[in-house]
Design a protein around this nucleic acid. Structure first.
Ligand SMILES: [Mn+2]
Ligand SMILES: [Mn+2]
Ligand SMILES: [Mn+2]
Ligand SMILES: [Mn+2]
Lengths: 220, 220
DNA sequence: ACATATTTTTAGATTCGTCTAAAAATATGT
DNA sequence: ACATATTTTTAGACGAATCTAAAAATATGT
């Protein structure tokens, strides 16, 4: 049985692999996990010895099939717990992540299955991130950053790219939560900021940074 | 922040303190936790140094006020999670304990409060054990082992003394679950076994051992 | 009360996960 | 291509949690 720490390393390597192809460097892992590179080297040797990753000195690591499966299970658990906390216990979307970081390590296949069923087999978590199914497959959907919409485009907010508490709390305050309808009224060349109409009612200007971190499914 | 292990020691000491007065011995803790006595001595020194327990060499330990509070919180969490698993996810009463052993270590006051509310502030867990309230207080109720009832006594099963999977599964099979009505039809002097009527329907003989491990609230 | 049994502590070792500092390998730029 | 910068590994240390074996303290019984 893997320790919490080992599980967290696998999850970090998975996350980094999503954004990079080729091997994941020691340094990248160290940065992702807030540990010293030397610690990563040690751990990476252990994980490789037990066939959770493939490791070549000075090159970096890949997840093995086994490691990949474990990482996906962790993400599945993490996101299902987030849905539970959000849907059933009414936590806000900026609160769920920290608690899910703990809950994702609970060991019980049966618990995951029952939780999935209890929650209605959700395909996306409270941040709009896809929840792997039992086989580790992620749902995919056509979504674009709000910053890529053009004048008069409209759609529904379905996800966020950034997950910081500050960003999520800002969005909450502006009513820019999942499910919200937005329409692009004006795009300012000057700084890329955008005037949008929120839920057919309120007009508001958001920065390009905000727009870039919001995912939209286009309508019409 | 306490480690899982430290929390488990405090819980073990609390449990032992319920059944014994006077200090809890190193050996008793070692037995309760399936560890070597030497390991307990080490840990007990650490816990004492941080004022979670009072420890005197060769004498044993007591929980400090602080240690007692933590132990009660753990038990509260454990039993609330058991209720969740039983009530919401339909686990059986022999399955809930092992998962709750993991879940009891999740750190979030808010989570406990919300879970409590979500479950309707239950006072007893799926085994009939009392759930401490926010202040650590246990509900108490008039209950007797079935073995202490006399001829023609009747009542409702409200708890079990033993928590082994084998016992819980046996009870399930006989329909001797919480809420079941039982009436004493006959007591056999020979071996202390008892013939009971279950839910006004089925008659069955149970051993004295079984009767001793079932708690009843008497009726009429 | 003293010999024996039991309990508890100490001593010394191991594994895990971490660190810092130094050495070695690799990458980069002119 | 070679000096310099960066990345990665090694070396050595530490604290937490555990173990076994031996020593010390306490309890027990005749
Ligand atoms: Mn998250
Ligand atoms: Mn999420
Ligand atoms: Mn339990
Ligand atoms: Mn219980």
């Amino acid at each position: 049985m893997l320790s919490f720490t080992e599980e967290n390393y696998l999850k970090a390597i998975f996350k980094l692999s999503e954004k990079t192809d080729g091997p994941i460097s020691t340094n990248a892992i160290a940065h992702e996990m807030n540990t010293a590179a030397a610690s990563v080297t040690d751990m990476v040797k252990r994980l490789a010895k037990n066939d959770f990753i493939l490791y070549e000195r000075y090159k970096g690591v890949f997840l093995s099939k086994q490691g990949d499966i474990i990482a996906r299970k962790l993400i599945r658990k993490h996101r299902l717990w987030e849905v539970f906390l959000f849907d059933k216990l009414n936590f806000t979307w900026d609160e769920v992540h920290d608690i899910a970081e703990q809950l994702e390590h609970i060991q019980s296949e049966e618990l995951v299955d029952r939780m999935d069923k209890y929650l209605g087999s959700p395909k996306f978590d409270p941040h709009g991130d896809p929840i792997p199914n039992k086989n580790g497959q992620f749902a995919i959907r056509e979504q674009d950053p709000l910053s890529e919409l053009v004048l008069k485009d409209k759609g529904i907010i379905v996800g966020v790219r950034e997950h910081s508490k500050a960003f999520l709390q800002y969005l909450e305050q502006c009513n820019l939560v999942l499910g919200t309808h937005v329409a692009v009224l004006e795009i300012f060349d000057y700084d890329g900021s955008i005037k949008i109409k929120i839920n057919h009612k309120i007009e508001q200007i958001i920065t390009q940074k905000v727009a870039n971190n919001l995912f939209i499914i286009k309508e019409e």
